[in-house]
Simulated assay, not measured.
Amino acid sequence: MSLQPVSIETMRQRHPEIFAPAWRRNRAGIVVVGGLVALLVYGLASLGFLHPRMIEGLGKLFSVFGMMLPPDPGTLERAFIYLKALGETLAIAFLGTLLGAMLAFPIGFLAARNATVGRVVHFLTRRSLDTLRGVDVLVWALIWINVVGLGPFAGVLALMTSDIGSFGKLFSEAIEAADKRPVEGVLSTGGGAVHRVRFGILPEVLPVMAGQVLYFIESNTRSASIIGIVGAGGIGMHLAEQIRVLEFQHVAFIIVLVLIAVAIIDWISTRLRLALIGTKRVAVA
């Protein structure tokens, strides 16, 4: 039986949806994209991005940058003061992150579906972590300043409180994503719930958790600089003071110090993370 050729016009009549213009087939997507663009334009206009003062502000921004060059602490004594404050900031970031991770470690197991002790505990733990994580670290700093007073202790408590919520969520997700085969192997040999966690889950998730902690130390160095502005210790207080008195060269020097510290921490954490990954691969092999 021979096949008769079908003309394009015949195919067009049989399958009009295939030959329809692309914009007709994707009308829903075009409407969504158009709505998002309109919302973006409305947001930019209502918030002042399309106002002439935005252009004037850009000109002032370049003039401020000009006043910040070259970065200069003023005197050698003031440079040492800034370095000491930077060390305090690093201590706040390290202690706040470490305490938050230590407290979130057991909470992460309660918030994980495959390791919790019950649905009610899982639900309450998840909602508690949402509450801690939903409040910004700057708000926690203001709260703890009113509780324990000004200083680095309030900064450590603020970072710790915020990080408990973040670490609890990340740890629980790492636990839920752990490979089930080691757990099944432990249970098949007669292991209990504690053995399942100790020998089945922990070896899988510890390198992941350690990598998350290393990243948060770097991230919290920036956060510790910000919360210092509201009186939670560290170099942020000096930064806010120099901005208020328009000493922009001092401001630039402080910003450069923070950037150098973050870059060094990032380099160290990358090396440690790679070492952890290599250790995990050797253990698996």
Rank of each mutant, 00 (worst) to 15 (best):
V117L: 14
H195L: 14
T75K: 08
L132C: 15
G192V: 15
F171E: 09
R196W: 09
I277M: 07
T161V: 12
W140N: 11
I92L: 07
A112H: 04
A101Y: 01
T279K: 04
L103Y: 09
E88H: 03
L76S: 06
D136F: 09
S2G: 02
P106W: 08
D179I: 12
I81G: 12
E218K: 07
A93L: 07
S162M: 14
V245H: 09
S223R: 06
V31S: 03
A252V: 05
G190S: 09
L58P: 02
P203Q: 13
K84C: 10
V156I: 14
R222Y: 07
E173L: 05
A193Y: 02
E88A: 09
V120Y: 04
A240G: 11
F49E: 01
L246T: 02
S188K: 07
E176V: 08
W267H: 08
R196M: 15
I268K: 07
S219W: 08
L76D: 05
L272F: 11
E176I: 02
L132F: 15
R271K: 12
G278Y: 06
R127Y: 11
V121M: 13
L257K: 03
R196C: 14
G191T: 03
H15Y: 15
G190I: 13
R25S: 13
F199T: 13
H15W: 14
F49M: 10
A111T: 04
H122I: 01
A193H: 05
S46E: 10
S128F: 14
